[in-house]
């Protein structure tokens, strides 16, 4: 499954079946990102589906 991460402007392929495992697979801290699936923010329990469009947005902004 393909995942876009905005902070790195990069697309990753993941095997995880839910958001919690996906963040672990990508070594991302759940407190530093929000995950948007098909345009909607989801929690870490969300079970991923094959056609889901997944975006990870960094919560870090400014400086």
């Amino acid at each position: 499954m393909k995942v876009y991460y905005d902070r790195e402007n990069k697309e990753y392929t993941v095997k995880a079946k839910n958001i919690q495992d996906m963040l672990k697979e990508l070594k991302l801290n759940k407190n530093s990102v929000i995950v948007v699936v098909n345009g909607m923010v989801v929690t870490e329990e969300y079970a991923l589906k094959t056609k889901d469009k997944i975006k990870i947005l960094s919560v870090v902004s400014g400086g």
Binding site: I34, V36, S58, V60
Partner: peptide
């Protein structure tokens, strides 16, 4: 920060990443 980002995204306040 995560609460604010969630709120800002859902309200359409910010869409683009900027750091």
């Amino acid at each position: 920060e995560k609460e604010i980002m969630t709120y800002a995204f859902l309200k359409g306040i910010v869409r683009e990443f900027n750091e």
